[in-house]
Nucleic acid binder design. Structure first.
Lengths: 138, 138
DNA sequence: GTAACTGCAAAATATTTGCATCCTT
DNA sequence: AAGGATGCAAATATTTTGCAGTTAC
């Protein structure tokens, strides 16, 4: 897995630094979404808050991670799939947020019909957020 | 329209105050989503920031307005349709956010197939956020 | 060696809380 | 009159910015 992290950074022309390696690994291990606060907690005494903000921002610009909109307005990030490229994120995101344990699942394999917009509207990105109770909490 | 506002407040056992009337009217006139900042600007020198926070919170608890998840993490609110009741918001929200003018449209009449979750997952709320360019900006 | 990244300090924003006063009913 | 709502002050929390020192390449 470590190699994967390095490859991702190299492929995006980012220099290899401790914080970037560590934060990327956290995303891979989480296999789901992380909030700024999660990263801060899990990396206790490791990185400055500011570094985390900047790293997340860099990753998002490069298309390595994407934001997940949430109803309660927490800022969540998750690894992008291959389809994401710099400045142009994958079109369809389907995320499930558990109301109980608060875990976020990326359910990219769930199909849904594409949405037809009214005339004159152009679609760029679609986000679907489903909340409820996950299989572990049920 | 003024009567509508009063009815809404009465139906929810809320006392009729200037800020509540004014903010509700803003939502009706906006016919779309408003952020805390929008309300603050539009009601210049009228209400305290804190009153706006508290009013929005009250409205949301009563099911008069609901939050709209956004990718850029702005907090948006919009009027709920009749189907919303206290503590139990309408199931399907479809919102369009213009990347250009930033206007948010509630497109509740656009159909989409219901989403099937994996076994063990229970659905509570579904939000669909489409971003792109709206008909006015196109 | 140079450009880029990090950490610290501090500024700018955003949100919450406490309390005295005012308003609605 | 009583309970709730508002405004103000202040405490917290969150995010951004500047800059000097450090690190990657």
């Amino acid at each position: 897995m470590n190699t994967g992290v390095l490859d991702i950074l190299r492929n995006n022309n980012l220099s290899i630094t401790d914080s970037r390696k560590k934060i990327l690994e956290m995303f891979q291990q989480a296999d789901g979404a992380l909030a700024h606060a999660d990263i801060e907690k899990k990396s206790k005494d490791k990185f400055d808050r500011v570094t985390i903000y900047r790293t997340l921002q860099t990753f998002e610009q490069k298309g390595i991670i994407h934001t997940i909109p949430t109803a309660d307005n927490a800022v969540l990030y998750a690894l992008c799939k291959e389809a994401c490229t710099q400045g142009h994120h994958q079109d369809n995101h389907l995320h499930f947020i558990c109301d109980n344990c608060n875990t976020t699942y990326c359910l990219n394999h769930i199909p849904f019909s594409s949405i037809k917009l009214p005339k004159g509207f152009t679609k760029n990105r679609t986000d679907i957020i489903v909340s409820g109770i996950c299989n572990k909490c049920n």
